[in-house]
Each structure stands twice: as C-alpha cells, then as structure tokens.
Amino acid sequence: MKYRTHLFSLRIGHALRESLKDAPYNANAFTKDLLAGLTVGIIAIPLAMALAIAIGVAPQYGLYTAIIAGFIIPLTGGSRYSISGPTAAFVVILYPIVHQYGLSGLLLASILSGVMLIIMALFRLGRFIQYIPESVTLGFTGGIAVVIAVLQVKDFFGLTINEMPESFVGKVATLTQAIP
C-alpha cells in the first residue's frame, strides 16, 4: 500500500511540505498557483454567498466561511491536488438547523461536526467509504439535487409563502397550493 501512504497523513501542512520538498518553488509555480487560487476564489465566493442565502442566513456569513476555509484547508490538508470549497449538499442539512436553532445552533453543529471528522480521521475511518455502493452515493446525490431544486421553486416563481414546512412533502404541497 505504498501508493496510498499520502492518503493517511494527518500531519498539519502535509501537502505544503510535500510540494515544497519535491521541487524548488519558483515564479512559474507561483503563477500557476495564483491562477488556480483566483479561479477557485471566483467560483467559491459567490457560491458560498448563494448557499448562505439558500439556508436562510445573510450572505456575509457564507463569505466569512469561504474566507476562513480558504486559509485553513490548504494549511491542514493532506493532498496538494485537492480543491476544497462550498458544497450544495450541506444546504439540505443546514437549512433545518438554521430554522430550528438559529445561527448559534449552526455554529454548534459546525463545531461538533468538525470534532467528529477529526475523531474519524484519527481512527482512520475514511477507508470504509469504499464499502458504500455507488448506487447509494448516486441516490444520495440525486436526492439532494431534488431537495435543493424544491427549495428554489419559491424564489424562481416569485411566490409569497410566509413559512415553509420542514418536511419535504409539506414543502411540495405548500408550493403546489401557492402556484396561481
């Protein structure tokens, strides 16, 4: 398993050390890194703001998250080829948390999920992902896409709905009734 040893590194800044160790860092490499960073930033910043709006918080919270993650992830990441950024999959998870517990609940859930991820990394539980069938992953992704699409119907059609129900079936029923 020599080819997979880089996947199991938990050292802080592993990717940064490995990339600096392999070859001298020169102006050409810096230019490529700068262009890659600008490209990711151009995509990540508006996406983070849009996802913040989608879960029902002000867009600046998404901006704060993207900026903080933009500094933390490269310094703690284990792969120099990984690009990390906001993901729409979490809208489905964060939307009910924000509406039931507010921003303080969102902060607590974020901290607890980070702690759980660190514990899972320490116990090397990431290797068990290979046992999840592809059909489960595709079904999960498709389900998230449907839920996110339903969440956007209200804004797309300009419907006036005061309160959306928490259940998916309730959301669909409310949207159906609100369409003229």
Rank of each mutant, 00 (worst) to 15 (best):
R80Q: 10
K2R: 12
P86E: 08
V153C: 06
I161M: 08
Q100C: 01
G139T: 05
V91Q: 01
L175D: 02
R124V: 01
R4F: 09
T87Q: 05
P59L: 04
V57H: 05
G126N: 13
F140D: 07
K2M: 01
I42A: 15
Y95V: 07
H14W: 09
A23T: 08
G126Q: 07
A69G: 04
Y95K: 10
M1V: 13
L51F: 15
L35R: 04
L20A: 05
I118Y: 13
L7D: 12
N26P: 03
F8W: 13
E18P: 05
R4S: 11
K154Y: 03
S79Q: 07
A121W: 03
S19T: 11
Q152R: 07
K2V: 06
T39E: 06
P46H: 06
I97L: 06
G37Y: 03
S104E: 13
F140T: 05
T87L: 06
I161H: 12
Y95R: 11
L117N: 15
I129Q: 09
Q60H: 10
L151N: 12
I67D: 13
A54R: 06
R4Q: 14
H99M: 11
V57Q: 07
I148M: 05
V91A: 04
F123H: 08
K32R: 12
D155L: 05
N28Y: 04
M120F: 13
G41P: 02
Q100Y: 03
L38M: 13
P133C: 09
P180D: 07
Q60C: 04
N28L: 08
